[in-house]
Each structure stands twice: as structure tokens, then as C-alpha cells.
């Protein structure tokens, strides 16, 4: 009786030892596979980021209306009424992150499915006035009365006004929020459960 109990205990102990060994082995294997899989995905996400260069994440469209008036003078001296000009032009202000300025990607040492991504601070990429959208009011002869204005200089001024206004209205904040969302999704698609996105000046990323 005692002998058979001994056999039973021996069998159970052996089974437990085998079980623990198999468990440890499988867990090590599993971690290795997961890490390899995530490394592969990190590489894929990096590759995809390399192809992006610029990620435009926020945009404002402006339609500015410019008014100017001047007195008409007869023989250079006598008042002969006034000329008024009113015209509109569309301006596009686009912001986002320029990955060509550098970025960094690191995978957490503690959690293999957590990534740390550092992006360059968002900047304004484009301030573009579309001259084909210029529309003159008060005249059916397009732009005929705009000749006396330095149109190019006025449009440049409007571009800088639009840029400043867009930044004041939160263009860069929105570009930052949207960049976090896009990059988080990019890494989520690569299998990362947690993605911490931060921003740094380009000089730090290049260094």
C-alpha cells in the first residue's frame, strides 16, 4: 500500500516538474515570438514613417477681402473724384509635422507592445495664395483697376496676416493633436497597444 502511494506521489511530482518546465519553456518562447513580432512591426512602422516625410494634419482656408481707395487728381493737382478697389483672394495655410527633420522610435524594455515616438514640433508648411481666385468687385474689367496697386506686395502681406491669424486660432495646436492621433494609429496598426507621442525641437532630434 505504502509502495503504491509512493508511486502515485512520484508520478504527480514528475508531472508537476514536467508541467513547470514546459510552462517556463513556452512562456520564454512566447515572449521571444512576441518580441520578434513587435520588432518586425516596429521596423514596418519605421519604414512607413520614412516614406511619409511630411504629415499635413491641419489646414485653414482664408478668403481675404482687400479694400483700397485713392483720390484721382486732374493734372496732378485738382481733385477729380476717387477710385476704389475691392478684391478678394483665397489663401491656404497648412501645418503638420515634417519627419524629414528627424524623429525617434523606441520600444519599451518592460512592455514589448509599448512604443515611444518623438516627433518634430509641428510647423506651418504652406501659406499659398491662389492668384486664380482673385476676384475684383466694382468692375467688370477684371483687374483693370488693380494696376495701380502693387498687387504682389499686397498679396504677400495678406499671406503673412493669414499665417499669423491661423496660428492665433490654434492651427499648430490642432496640427499637434492630429499628428498624435495619426502616429498613434500608425503604431496601433503595427500591433502596439500603447503609444506615447511627444514632440521635440528638430535640433534635438537631429542631435
Amino acid at each position: 500500500m505504502a509502495k503504491s502511494r509512493g508511486w502515485v506521489l512520484f508520478a504527480i511530482a514528475t508531472a508537476l516538474v514536467v508541467l513547470v518546465a514546459v510552462g517556463i519553456g513556452l512562456n520564454v518562447q512566447r515572449s521571444r515570438l512576441l518580441r520578434a513580432e513587435l520588432e518586425e512591426r516596429t521596423r514596418a512602422a519605421r519604414l512607413q514613417m520614412e516614406t511619409l516625410e511630411r504629415v499635413a494634419t491641419a489646414e485653414y482656408i482664408y478668403r481675404n477681402v482687400i479694400y483700397a481707395s485713392r483720390d484721382r487728381l486732374l493734372l496732378g493737382r485738382l481733385p477729380a473724384g476717387s477710385t476704389e478697389v475691392l478684391f478678394s483672394v483665397s489663401i491656404r495655410v497648412q501645418a503638420g509635422v515634417d519627419l524629414s527633420q528627424g524623429y525617434s522610435v523606441a520600444v519599451s524594455a518592460e512592455k514589448a507592445d509599448r512604443a515611444f515616438v518623438t516627433l518634430p514640433e509641428p510647423t506651418v508648411f504652406v501659406v499659398d495664395a491662389d492668384e486664380s481666385t482673385i476676384e475684383e468687385y466694382f468692375s467688370e474689367e477684371r483687374l483693370m483697376r488693380l494696376n495701380w496697386l502693387d498687387l504682389g506686395r499686397e498679396i504677400e502681406l495678406q499671406k503673412s496676416v493669414a499665417r499669423e491669424d491661423a496660428v492665433q486660432r490654434g492651427l499648430l495646436t490642432r496640427a499637434r493633436t492630429n499628428a498624435i492621433s495619426v502616429i498613434t494609429e500608425l503604431f496601433a496598426l503595427a500591433g502596439f497597444a500603447e503609444v506615447d507621442v511627444t514632440f521635440a525641437p528638430p535640433a534635438e532630434l537631429r542631435g
Binding site: 503504491s4 508511486w7 502515485v8 508520478a11 504527480i12 508541467l19 510552462g23 513556452l26 512562456n27
Partner: peptide
């Protein structure tokens, strides 16, 4: 018979444990 039963039980427990561990593999 009792020894055989105990051994079988241990084997079943081991197989179940290994099966559970295997299920966790990706």
C-alpha cells in the same frame, strides 16, 4: 487499480496544463 487511477489523473492534469499553456502561444 488505485495506482493506475492516480497516475491517469496526474497524466490528465499534466495534459490539461500543457494544453492550456499551448493555447497561449501565438
Amino acid at each position: 487499480v488505485r495506482t493506475i487511477a492516480w497516475t491517469l489523473l496526474a497524466a490528465i492534469v499534466s495534459i490539461a496544463a500543457v494544453y492550456t499553456a499551448l493555447r497561449r502561444l501565438p
